[in-house]
Design a protein around this nucleic acid. Structure first.
Lengths: 109, 109
DNA sequence: CGGACATATATCCCTTTAGGCATGGGATAA
DNA sequence: TTATCCCATGCCTAAAGGGATATATGTCCG
């Protein structure tokens, strides 16, 4: 995983991805929707593009960006391991009570 | 969302969360499992704790950490908006063809 | 060709933050 | 109490990364 979470850590990049949720957008449209400067938008789009999160398509003198799910899927799958921690009313207390009581301190495995 | 993705961006913190997947662990156990220095582990655990991603429970002279799903759930829900981009064999091309052809350049909405 | 428009890149500045080291502090055992 | 184990914190340094401004590249039109 080429650090998808690293990409998503930046709010500006998440805003861009949110603006792309319902289809491809030109850079100008993204600038309007995110209130970022045009160079910033291009810079972040570049990063997203290099990581395969978005794709570009030339259309006249504008570039249309769209989402590619592949990378985002990895992040989603990583998080899926933790679903059980918020499903079925599983609280921290439930988890504690589930542990066996005899805890050996600091064994290698 | 107190920037859950920001937390997950750091590999060391993800490693800690991975080591906590099957239940609570002491700091010493986490040190062994992550090959990080003890101060680093404590430091990252502190960040995770302040953000409500993990919880602590004192047990004699050791502190047992465990996962709290609440915050992670927010990240998972954010990503759920993009599931359609990798489900049902939906590729970028499909997405492109789905768009209407008459695109007006740069309208506010 | 020349000029306007759309996007990309380059450079600088600045903030954030991780990691290492040393140290402090609480709990346990002798 | 003293020694020891387990963990937390503070300070420092180094590096990563975002935003702004200026500029380059590329495309369309007259």
């Amino acid at each position: 995983m080429a650090d998808v979470f690293q990409l998503l850590a930046e709010p500006s990049r998440r805003h861009l991805l949110e603006a792309l949720r319902d289809g491809e957008r030109s850079v100008g449209e993204l600038v309007d929707r995110t209130r970022m400067s045009q160079p910033s938008v291009s810079k972040q789009l570049r990063i997203l593009r290099d990581s395969g999160v978005v794709a570009v398509r030339p259309a006249g003198r504008q570039h249309l960006y769209s989402i590619r799910g592949r990378s985002l899927r990895e992040a989603s799958e990583w998080l899926s391991y933790y679903e059980r921690f918020w499903q079925d009313g599983l609280t921290r207390m439930d988890e504690v009570l589930r542990r066996e009581p005899g805890r050996r301190p600091r064994t290698k495995a």
